[in-house]
Amino acid sequence: MADSTSALPAVDRFPGATRRNRWTLSLLGILLLAAGGAGAALGLGAFGARNKARTVIDTSVQDVADRWWFWVAVAALGLLIALFALTWLRVQLRSNRLGSFDLEVDRSRGETTLASSAVTDAVSDEVAAYSGVRQATARMSGSPDAPTLNVTATLDGRRPTGELADRIVGAAVAHARQALDMPQLATRVELRLASRRRRNVR
């Protein structure tokens, strides 16, 4: 597991949007670079002096624009762009948060689902109560039949980080796995160190 790699990507609540944004923005970058580069090359005479002296919309372009199908194609392209943009916007709202998940793996024995908040509230409350933890949140992600428990804890520096990591894993996560009877529940713990140390009042 973690021992095979020294670094991990940060927890991403919107992995679909992250992927989509990356390739869409890359594609857009390529299109802008190609279009702008070609236009600049044309203007600087890379395609001959005759082309360089042409107006951007000249008679040959105007001839095409005068055909009936040209505006149908423009409208179709506009529609495609609008639909693409709409799906791109919708992806931004889609998180990988899991509202509920399956407790019964064997579907032939029926279906039992559990609201994620039943687990996440208990885990975050337990971790937040540890001395040395300023704030804790928990959420379930993944698919209903393969959920992942994500715990994020902000540590205030009063306790050694390694000790708190062991406690979160050995107590809170272990309790959740035991309560769910899912000893192999995939779990991801993200620790953050707070910027200022809080005075010890507990």
Binding site: L8, T161, V173, A186, R188, V189, L191, L193
Partner: peptide, 8 residues
């Protein structure tokens, strides 16, 4: 193996 722990 089912557990990943990371520090920001």
């Amino acid at each position: 193996e089912t557990l990943t722990v990371g520090l920001a």
